[in-house]
Nucleic acid binder design. Sequence first.
DNA 1: TCCATAAATTGGATTTGTTACAATTTGTGG
DNA 2: CCACAAATTGTAACAAATCCAATTTATGGA
Lengths: 140, 140
Amino acid sequence: MTDPATQDFAATLRAHGLAPSAPRVAILRWLAGHPTHPTVDEVYRALHPTMPSLSRTTVYNVLHAFVACGLAGKVRTEDLELRYDGCAAPHAHFKCTRCGAILDLEGLPRNLAQRVGLPKECRAQAAAVTFWGLCPNCAD
Amino acid sequence: MTDPATQDFAATLRAHGLAPSAPRVAILRWLAGHPTHPTVDEVYRALHPTMPSLSRTTVYNVLHAFVACGLAGKVRTEDLELRYDGCAAPHAHFKCTRCGAILDLEGLPRNLAQRVGLPKECRAQAAAVTFWGLCPNCAD
DNA sequence: TCCATAAATTGGATTTGTTACAATTTGTGG
DNA sequence: CCACAAATTGTAACAAATCCAATTTATGGA
């Protein structure tokens, strides 16, 4: 992954068919520098101080657009909140039930669909694998 | 699975450490007869006509208690709603993105944790595998 | 049976996350 | 520089889930 400080976010946005507006660039840069599966609210609170005109709705809109064009991934765990992932590639997640951190795991297992007996007639377009438990920091 | 009409739900509740109150028996019976992964609201709307004193909060409380004692499972897909599963055993799910139906698949794959590279220090207590796509009825 | 205590239920208020929408602002091509 | 399209903004509406205090119901002992 490229260093967030030097990366050309405007070019990345254009390459994905999105005009490089100030909110989009700011959100994409922040997302690249914070691989913490932030919620919409976390993104908003992080950027609003230095970008007072930013609205929560824009964060929703922009993140939604990022997911639609493959610039970000979407994660929903057992919690209510939607979380976004700077990495759009499919991979499993582990969520700590005590501190709330979400860890990225490797990609999904090969042939996961047939392992769980997914009928061939069900054409799966997406899949998610999530674990819950105590992370190393919280287990002690 | 036993026939919902003849099953002794009060005994089942007692066996799981729950007093067999009227709401609990009604909800457990309905859940056993409707393996459709209902939402809290669906359970409430189904039972309220014949049990006018039933409150939504009670449905939340009772389902939460069922999950805690192993009488029901909890499913959260990409949607906002929590859904409950009369079957508490872990298994994968498929959700149709068109009609919204949730299909039960087989149990989770063996060694799923190590297949996705879950660190040994993360003691997983729960896991979920979910697919999205078009179900056979909607694919045509 | 009656009383005291604990458990469960109830309903309304509250919180939180999300979406809808109309108005304003910004950007772009002619 | 103008006109049009796209993006952003803020408020309001919605929906799901939780909180909490009051009421009701069950339970065990005198």
